[in-house]
Write a protein that binds this DNA or RNA. Sequence first.
RNA 1: GCCUCGGUAGCUCAAUUGGCAGAGCAGUUGACUCUUAAUCAAUUGGUUUGGGGUUCAAGUCCCCACCGGGGCACCA
Length: 632
Amino acid sequence: MLLGFQSQFVFDSPPPVFMDDTNSLIEQRKAKLAALRAKGIDPFKNKFTPTETCRHAREQYTEGREVALAGRITAHRDMGKSMFLDIRDQSGRMQIYAQKNVLGDEQFAIFQHLDLADFIGVKGTMFTTKTNEISVKITSFVILAKALRPPPAKWHGLEDTEIRYRQRYLDLMASKAAAPGTSTTGFEKGSPGDVLLLRSEIIREIRNFMHARGFVEVETPMMQAIPGGAAAQPFVTKHNALGCNFYLRIALELYLKRLLVGGVDKVFEIGRVFRNEGLSRKHNPEFTMLEAYEAYGDYESMMELVQGLVCHVAQKVLGTLTIVHERRASVFSVISSREQTMREINQQLRSLPKFELLAEELGKITEQLSEICHSHNQQPAWEIAKASNTPWDAYVGKFCEGMKCKETRPDGIEEKFNKAHVVKAFEWIDLCQKKEINLTPPWRRVKYKDLVREWCSDKAEVDDWFALSPQERRNIAVGHLGLGGDIAKDFEDFEVTNAVFGKYIEPTLIQPTFVTHLPKELVPLAKLTNVKPGDSDYEDLKDTVEVFECCINGQEIAPAYTEQNDPIAQRERLEHQAGGEQQKLDEDFLVALEHGMPPAGGMGMGIDRLCMMLLGQESIRDVILFPQLKPK
RNA sequence: GCCUCGGUAGCUCAAUUGGCAGAGCAGUUGACUCUUAAUCAAUUGGUUUGGGGUUCAAGUCCCCACCGGGGCACCA
């Protein structure tokens, strides 16, 4: 495993101290552990070899077949002199049946005192119970690992988002199994386990696709003396022996282009990049990028590549090109975020007079909100309600008033809703807008200017946005469109237009769309569009570059360029970007370009955002196993 | 960094607006040899995230800190 673990680490802050949060449950488990050891039983076995997985055993069922299975205990039902117990491995669940007269008094007593979350190995024969469940009648068992801490609640699962992210293993443990035949992963759709396995398949299919197209996969430095290829703040780290600082890479670009210079014509890398910026639903400080470069290609060949890649992955992993984000649910189920329980409540609602009014009220509010959303071009409902004349407090107040009614859940708990639930509910409504994304090619291609024109004539009643004077554009954007807060006084004209694009237009691009020919100022490292005076579209294209931004699900998924290969033009751009700080210039990269780089198309794709889109997850933290959180 | 909502038993949640901190699950004990959210009976479990303040009395009101969600800003 880890060799040379003796090396000296120097921490700026003391190493983390683990909370000694002992409680009676942990104490009891430790006592059981000690009791087992006192009997000469080692509850942490080195090896037990199952003959197969739980799923395999179920699929290859024959009455009386002998099997050895291993897994974690997820439930037990004690019947006195016999006992049922569920074990689970990655493949699925298996019911175990133990009988006192088979195991003997002593063994059975030990079996009865096993805890949820312990790992055991069992040997026995397969049979089917009266209620038609395939099970294993055991003849012997061994304890493979004793769990000293209790697992998450078996029914509710884990609701605490902080624990879900910090202790992902608990989140995975609580992942619900899907009903047989409804899922390829064996987990309920959208559950942490499901997302984990599908993400793995997505990345495998990306590799398959790129390799099939003749691209070579490489690995380039993550620690760089000069972080380049994007405009982002880097993380700094220190190399002791070399006595210098390194930066964690913010992009893959400059090293992959060096490989183009060296003669690797089709090259790609999938890897982590690090950006020292704020965190949000769409941003994690470290995230996974795919970048690909193709000599003799351009932005148009990259369009074909991106479209082909995403369709290939969707088809292979999901078996469809139609992606439905169907997490939109009734306000009630959203409020509780325990859908199963709430579904029943919804059914009950109609028969309970005191809820009739409330349900009606909720329906009206939901309707109103979706109307408002629609007329405001799908701005978040939460924001709109806050900003509009709608008495938001009255909404919440009314809600809470209604919610004062208690009701009894199927598990016997009296539940009441409070203001926090309601606020959360509305935030969730924003996240749960039902979406259907159709990836069937060919995807729409539209020039940036045409898209802005189209939207402005449709929504802002401006015939031709670009026929206006810069001052008129600014006035409309700040006034009629309400972008005052997003447009600084010193913004240039193209930035005003881009604010409109970013705030209002990009979020509407749910269906896959290539937005092409952006103004050159927005993308300084791409090549100018090749048009001459006299060409019919000269006016529209003269100050644009050969690029596209591929938007799906209202987010930018992949930008691509016809890459700049003129070393002199590139130097000017980088110097301009570096703002006169010579130490930020990657001289080696510029020297490489001077040796000649073939014309090429290049693209970058945010893998995390791709996963969000394909897997219907609304937060990047749900497609990254261990998202970055502030240390405790 | 700013705005906003939140943090109560191992887990999921209550606490009638400032009046003895409660329930289900699981845990423990007991009954039960085909149960499956097993059931039935009894029972343990709390520095209410931490610190200060107001009050006869604070989970609840005020201030500060910590952590998280959402939004904004930064950033493609």
